Computed example of a mutant assay.
Amino acid sequence: MPELGHLTRTEIASLAGLAPFDRDSGQYRGQRRIAGGRPRVRRALYAAALPASFRWNPALVDIYTRLRANGKNHKQALTACARKLLTFANAVLARQTNWQPQLNGC
């Protein structure tokens, strides 16, 4: 993704296909689903978030366990971790610094 580091976090998530879209109409409130974007990037981030959110990245482990405790299912929590991983990469490239994990308030 050559745009990484040049767009906002919402724009980059939408470009990767990790932004949730709603299905609302009037009083009907549908489910939020991810769609569109670049499927290869989305698959790669999802695959990278799987081991990172269970063992290797303390910030993502914290996010995953918090989301699961709040009632999100496994795939929803893992998709949120993939989006957060993309946000981390976007911030690192935009700031041109090394990534420093912050466990509270990622």
Rank of each mutant, 00 (worst) to 15 (best):
P2G: 15
P2T: 09
E3H: 13
E3Q: 14
L4F: 06
G5M: 03
T8E: 13
T10Q: 12
A13M: 06
L15I: 02
L15Y: 14
A16Q: 01
A16K: 00
L18R: 03
A19Q: 09
F21H: 12
F21K: 07
R23F: 14
R23G: 05
S25A: 15
G26Q: 11
Y28V: 14
R29T: 07
G30S: 12
Q31H: 14
Q31L: 12
R32S: 14
R32F: 04
R32A: 13
I34M: 07
I34L: 05
A35Y: 10
G36F: 07
G37Q: 07
G37M: 07
P39G: 03
P39L: 04
R40K: 07
V41P: 00
A44V: 05
L45R: 04
Y46N: 04
Y46L: 13
Y46F: 13
Y46C: 02
A47D: 14
A48L: 09
A48S: 15
A48T: 06
A49C: 03
P51C: 05
P51R: 05
P51N: 09
A52I: 01
S53L: 08
S53R: 11
F54D: 01
F54L: 12
R55G: 08
W56N: 13
W56V: 01
W56Q: 13
L60P: 00
V61K: 09
V61L: 01
T65P: 00
R68S: 03
N70P: 00
G71R: 09
G71P: 06
G71F: 13
K72C: 14
N73S: 10
H74C: 08
K75H: 14
K75R: 15
A77V: 02
L78W: 03
T79G: 05
A80K: 09
C81G: 10
A82K: 05
A82D: 02
R83E: 03
R83K: 15
L85D: 06
L86E: 07
F88S: 08
N90V: 10
A91F: 08
A91S: 12
L93G: 02
L93S: 09
A94H: 15
R95L: 08
Q96P: 03
Q96T: 14
N98C: 08
N98W: 03
N98E: 14
Q100H: 12
Q100S: 11
Q100D: 06
P101V: 10
P101Y: 08
L103P: 02
N104C: 04
N104L: 04
N104P: 00
G105I: 07
G105Q: 10
C106E: 04
